[in-house]
Amino acid sequence: MAEQTAHSESRPQTPAGTSPGIRTAVERARKPDSAVVRDALGVGIAVGLSGFAFGVTSAGAGLSLLQTCALSLLVFTGASQFALVGALAAGGNPLAAAAGAFFLGVRNAFYGLRLSQLLALPRFVRPLAAHWVIDETTAVALAQPTRHAARLGFTVTGLTLYVLWNLTTLGGVLGAEALGDTDAWGLDAAGPAVFLALLAPMLRTTTERAVAGLAVVLGLGFLPVLPAGVPVLMAALAAPAVLWFKGRSITRNSNRNSNIARDSDADRTKGEDR
Rank of each mutant, 00 (worst) to 15 (best):
A2H: 10
A2R: 08
Q4W: 07
T5H: 13
S8V: 11
T14W: 13
P15F: 13
I22Q: 13
R30Y: 05
S34G: 02
R38I: 05
V47A: 08
G48S: 05
G48H: 00
G48D: 01
G51L: 04
G51R: 02
A53K: 10
T57V: 07
G60A: 04
L63Q: 01
A70Q: 11
F76N: 00
A83H: 01
A87Y: 00
A90L: 08
G92Y: 01
A96T: 06
F102I: 09
Y111A: 06
G112S: 10
L113H: 06
L115T: 01
A120T: 12
R126P: 00
W132S: 04
W132Q: 02
W132C: 02
V133D: 00
I134C: 02
T137H: 04
A139L: 13
L142K: 15
A143S: 15
P145L: 13
R151I: 15
V156S: 13
T157I: 06
T157Y: 02
G158Y: 00
T160L: 07
L161Q: 06
L161C: 10
V163D: 05
L170E: 08
L170G: 09
L174Q: 12
L179I: 13
G180R: 13
D181V: 11
T182N: 05
L187N: 02
D188A: 06
A189S: 12
P192I: 02
V194F: 08
L196H: 08
L199Q: 00
E208D: 11
E208V: 04
V211N: 04
G213D: 11
L214P: 12
P224V: 11
P224D: 14
A228Q: 09
P231E: 03
L233Q: 03
A239S: 05
P240I: 05
V242E: 01
I250Q: 12
S254A: 14
N257Q: 15
D263Q: 12
S264I: 03
S264D: 10
A266I: 06
T269V: 12
T269P: 06
K270C: 12
E272G: 14
D273P: 09
